[in-house]
Computed example of a mutant assay.
Amino acid sequence: MSRIAQAFDSGQWSVIASASAKAALLTLALPLAACGAGGFSLEKAEVDRSIITSSAPSAPAVPASSDNDSDQTTIGNAVSSADIQELGGQAVPWANAGTGSRGSITELVELKD
């Protein structure tokens, strides 16, 4: 056997293993000790005022075209449920609670196809 192989066979592994374990432990312990010795404190922490944030503009709750469609549906429902003969020329009121629109239909003509 060569002299290098004989040195490792004669129990040198425990010395090498313990030295590398100590180095690994020291490598892990030193940064942690440095953090603790520096003294991080929440009392010393300050708000970072250099960060600027903003928000995106909010979209309207109901788009305008949807409002028109909703009003047209409400008017259509009021006209279709009105009894023209019973009204006798009176206006037909309508109101859309969703949009806040309201009005009255003053003239109705019934067509039969």
Results as ranks from 00 to 15, higher is better:
26 L>G: 13
104 S>H: 12
109 V>R: 15
33 A>Y: 08
67 D>C: 14
92 V>A: 02
42 L>E: 11
19 A>H: 01
35 C>G: 14
80 S>T: 11
57 P>R: 06
91 A>W: 06
108 L>E: 00
75 I>V: 12
94 W>C: 00
54 S>N: 07
47 V>G: 12
97 A>I: 03
63 P>Q: 03
51 I>K: 13
57 P>A: 05
100 G>P: 00
14 S>I: 15
73 T>P: 04
90 Q>I: 02
99 T>K: 10
2 S>D: 11
77 N>M: 02
85 Q>M: 01
42 L>R: 07
95 A>Y: 02
103 G>Q: 03
51 I>D: 00
54 S>C: 00
11 G>V: 10
44 K>D: 07
6 Q>K: 14
65 S>C: 03
47 V>K: 14
59 A>L: 08
38 G>I: 06
50 S>R: 07
67 D>L: 09
76 G>R: 05
11 G>C: 03
56 A>S: 11
60 P>G: 07
36 G>Q: 11
61 A>P: 02
96 N>H: 04
75 I>T: 04
80 S>I: 06
62 V>D: 01
30 L>I: 15
24 A>E: 10
95 A>F: 07
22 K>R: 06
8 F>I: 03
71 D>C: 06
66 S>K: 07
42 L>F: 14
104 S>L: 09
113 D>W: 11
100 G>E: 06
61 A>F: 04
77 N>F: 05
8 F>T: 01
98 G>P: 00
10 S>R: 12
28 L>V: 11
57 P>D: 08
86 E>M: 06
10 S>L: 09
52 I>R: 09
58 S>H: 05
6 Q>R: 14
8 F>G: 03
14 S>V: 13
56 A>R: 11
11 G>I: 10
23 A>T: 08
70 S>Q: 04
50 S>A: 07
41 S>N: 08
15 V>I: 10
92 V>S: 02
10 S>A: 14
8 F>H: 05
101 S>H: 10
97 A>Q: 05
68 N>L: 15
52 I>P: 09
42 L>T: 12
47 V>Q: 10
26 L>Y: 14
79 V>A: 07
24 A>T: 14
26 L>T: 13
24 A>F: 06
37 A>Q: 13
107 E>V: 02
5 A>N: 13
